[in-house]
Nucleic acid binder design. Structure first.
Lengths: 95, 95
DNA sequence: TAACTTTACGAAGATCGTAACAATA
DNA sequence: TATTGTTACGATCTTCGTAAAGTTA
């Protein structure tokens, strides 16, 4: 599992719309949609209930989706901390 | 970055030897070696100092390596929790 | 029917394993 | 020189984007 999938899911939930999320992530909708379907297959359960219509679309997090969303945020935070902590170390060493 | 890279780095450090770690992970040494080099390139600094010789090899974690090791363990723990929490949810729903 | 998601499929890129090479106590 | 790690390179697999089809208020 690529960590970008966690990050992209968080962005998707925060954005509330797959098309706009894909634009923000510099991805196409099909790519992001496939990532979501991959996650749901990997975890064995739906994460979102998506409703489409003429006036736009919306979705609700399933119970599993809520859990995954929280875990994904934690995982992304740790990865970001890894980068920044190590970068801070390297930077200080140079000075 | 695939989360398996974090997991494999943790196993590498815990094993203390690239060949044995690769065997445990059902990977070849070259594949694991490339993963380490990828991580070092990605984070911009060496993570291990490896010493080779006739009687085997050993390595020391660099300072950045120590930080990465701790973060990698945390990240893996969160991913494992995501799987188990969601699986527990699905399992309970079935009952 | 408008707005959006999903599926199909070909192409580009990533990553593995095998084999050969390099390094060091 | 024995025991590792590293490079080179071809093959396989993955995942993206484009285009077409499907879905629903």
């Amino acid at each position: 599992m690529d960590t970008s999938y966690y990050h992209n899911f968080v962005t998707l939930v925060n954005t509330g719309n797959m098309t706009r999320a894909a634009n923000r992530l510099h991805l196409t909708q099909p790519a992001l949609s496939k990532q979501l379907r991959y996650l749901e297959a990997e975890f064995g359960t739906p994460l979102l209930h998506i409703r489409r219509g003429q006036r736009g679309s919306s979705f609700q997090l399933t119970e599993a989706g809520h859990i995954f969303y929280e875990k994904a945020k934690q995982l992304c935070a740790i990865e970001i901390a890894a980068y920044s902590d190590i970068e801070g170390l390297v930077h200080n060493a140079i000075i």
